[in-house]
Write a protein that binds this DNA or RNA. Structure first.
Lengths: 111, 111
DNA sequence: CTTGCATACATAAGAAACTTATGTGTATTT
DNA sequence: AAATACACATAAGTTTCTTATGTATGCAAG
């Protein structure tokens, strides 16, 4: 696991990116998927996940549908058209940011 | 400028990395250097900078010396041996983290 | 059959790390 | 003379997470 505060500021984009990649997903599924693709290095806690999803819903970035699996409820999240746009913008910004950070970590010798 | 909260969690490492690269530096100098190498995309605010530097000093990661330029004071920061180690470790962690994030942003098609 | 773990949601209190605002004073430029 | 840059510092407020807690189902193991 990474130092807890590295995730700060990137969590929302990570979640949105998962919805973009995989379409309809439910909360728990997102945590498992992110854990898988990060080789266990990013574990999204429930206390971070659900408030974030609720916030995204309140902002109109995602819509939800409840589904029952037996007696157990699942809440599926889907990007809205506005959500697709937001996801795209945030992805570009994050990519740009990590490019800048990379440069700071591995400075090129100046001329 | 990037969304403010992207910087969270990376600021300390950015500062330490500058001290590693450039040796002895003072606070204001760090903000200018980071602004320069990030093409103006990262502007460290004073409210973030000084508390971070003070914390690093309290932890024994850096030492300080005051110097007078005319009547104006400058406080120079230098990495301690322990600081070099911390910087190295944090750099590796951050590099690893951004590699993971890159993978999330640009997923490779699975087999 | 009951204990434990995984699945699946949710919220509240607390901590960390910033932003924004404010303050002090010197030096240089317009 | 006024504005901007240099150079430090701290306090209040906000965001965003962690940690803790709560509810409930499903399944496997002993």
């Amino acid at each position: 696991m990474y130092s807890k505060n590295l995730i700060k500021g990137t969590l929302q984009t990570i979640i949105l990116k998962q919805l973009e990649e995989n379409g309809r997903m439910y909360g728990y599924e997102i945590t498992q998927k992110v854990k898988e693709i990060s080789d266990g290095k990013i574990e999204i806690t429930e206390g971070a996940l659900y408030p974030t999803l609720h916030k995204l819903e309140a902002e109109g970035v995602v819509t939800t549908e409840k589904e029952f699996i037996g007696k157990r409820v699942r809440k599926y999240y889907t990007l809205t058209p506005s959500g697709n746009k937001v996801t795209s913008e945030k992805s570009i910004e994050l990519a740009d940011f990590i490019a800048t950070i990379s440069q700071i970590l591995q400075p090129k010798p100046s001329a």
